[in-house]
């Protein structure tokens, strides 16, 4: 796993690359935490995502919920095909968010089974 944070006027971008599976879950959490603390609006760039598993999706999900609760923004700006496949494999695509806070702007809304 490699990560870097790019700061821009509109907000920051967290670039996560490589293998984002359970072995690196701790490091990913720290990276997310750090990036979220620094910015009001955070975009996660997953164009360099090679492989990963459920632990990564759980982290993104929880991070997103936390930012909604803190009136911040978190979105996925770019994603690789491998990431799209992971979302589908885990059955995370949905039409509505999973809790009240994120009912309308859940990360996984709009993903499709064909993606």
């Amino acid at each position: 796993m490699k990560h870097s944070i790019v700061k821009e006027s509109e907000g920051s971008t967290l670039v996560l690359q490589g293998d984002l599976s359970i072995e690196s879950a701790g490091a990913v959490k720290e990276a997310l935490q750090e990036a979220m603390e620094q910015a009001e609006s955070l975009a996660v760039d997953l164009s360099g995502f090679d492989s990963g598993d459920l632990s990564f999706l759980q982290l993104l999900c929880s991070a997103h919920r936390a930012s909604v609760q803190n009136n911040k923004k978190l979105s996925i700006s770019k994603q690789s095909d491998a990431f799209k496949h992971l979302v589908v494999a885990a059955g995370f695509c949905r039409a509505k968010g999973c809790t009240e806070v994120s009912a309308e702007n859940c990360l996984w809304i709009g993903g499709s089974e064909d993606g």
Binding site: L32, Q33, S55, L59, C61, S62, A66, Q69, C98
Partner: peptide, 15 residues
């Protein structure tokens, strides 16, 4: 996939 039991970010154990 049901995600409603994922705990708040600060409390979750990523593993």
């Amino acid at each position: 996939g049901q995600t409603d039991e994922i705990p708040p970010f600060a409390e979750m154990d990523p593993e």
